Simulated assay, not measured.
Amino acid sequence: MDQAFLPKGVTLQSSHRISRMHACLKPGRITSQLALGALILLGFIKGVAPVQAAEVIPGRCHMDMCSWFSIEEKDLVGTDRDGALFRVVTKSWRSQHPGGSYDRRTPRRGGGTATSYALCSKTHPALLDAGTPGRWAVNELD
């Protein structure tokens, strides 16, 4: 990945390659944060209309818990011949569903914000998430 896309002073922590199709079709095999990022990134790549800010979107339900998120901000950071880098701010929540009763409404807890970056590129699509302070984890989608 071209480090010119990274925010100033940020270094890479790790790199993981994940199939774009796998990220869309089988999110149970990857982390929910990565699945969320893949959905955001693929929405940018395919030109899907952006989600309205603060709209709460259901994520994955598994092991008596559901995840929820909202896209609060989406800003173009920069472009070059390989693609465009977007800064994405999300809020996330979780809800408990004892006995796997996912159709039953329960209170959401959380609401913390997170900032990540989506590199929209036909040749090197990737998600960048904060790792340890000053370092980022890069997940390349192939």
Rank of each mutant, 00 (worst) to 15 (best):
H16E: 14
Q52S: 04
R17N: 12
V51I: 09
F69P: 01
P58V: 02
A23Q: 12
G59D: 04
W136F: 15
S14F: 06
A130Y: 13
L25I: 11
I30H: 05
I40G: 03
Q13T: 06
P133F: 15
I40T: 13
K122T: 08
S95W: 14
G134N: 10
S116M: 14
G111C: 08
R81W: 04
M65K: 15
D2T: 07
C61A: 09
D75K: 01
R81P: 04
R108S: 04
M65W: 09
C24A: 11
V10E: 12
D80Q: 06
L76G: 01
T90W: 00
T123F: 11
G47P: 12
K8Y: 09
Q13N: 14
M21D: 12
G78S: 13
P125C: 09
R105Y: 04
R108N: 04
V48P: 01
T11Q: 13
L36M: 14
R60Q: 14
L128H: 02
S67N: 05
M21I: 13
R60T: 03
C66S: 12
G59Q: 02
S92F: 03
Y102T: 14
T115I: 12
P98A: 09
A118Y: 01
G9W: 02
V10P: 01
D82C: 05
S67A: 05
R17E: 12
A35Q: 09
G134W: 08
D2L: 10
I40R: 03
A35C: 09
S92L: 05
R105W: 07
R29M: 09
G99Q: 10
L6D: 10
D75L: 06
V88Q: 01
A54R: 04
F86L: 05
T123C: 07
W68P: 02
W93Y: 10
G43A: 15
G100I: 11
L41S: 00
D103T: 09
G111V: 11
H97F: 11
G59V: 04
Y102M: 10
M1W: 08
S14V: 04
R105D: 07
L39I: 05
A23P: 04
R29T: 13
L6M: 14
A84T: 04
S95C: 07
H97L: 06
H22T: 13
L42C: 15
S32N: 10
L128P: 02
M63G: 03
G78N: 02
A4H: 08
G131Q: 08
E72K: 00
G83H: 00
Q33G: 09
R17T: 11
T79M: 07
A130G: 06
T115G: 06
G28K: 03
T79V: 03
A53R: 06
V77I: 14
S14T: 15
R109M: 07
H97V: 10
L25E: 15
L128D: 05
L141M: 15
L42A: 12
E140C: 07
S67T: 15
G131N: 07
K122W: 07
H22V: 14
I18M: 05
E140P: 03
F5G: 01
D75S: 06
N139A: 15
S70W: 01
G78E: 09
D82Y: 08
L119V: 03
T113I: 08
M1Q: 08
L12W: 01
G9Q: 13
V48E: 12
C66E: 10
D142L: 12
D75I: 05
R81V: 11
V51H: 00
E72H: 00
V138Y: 03
T90E: 12
D142W: 05
C66L: 06
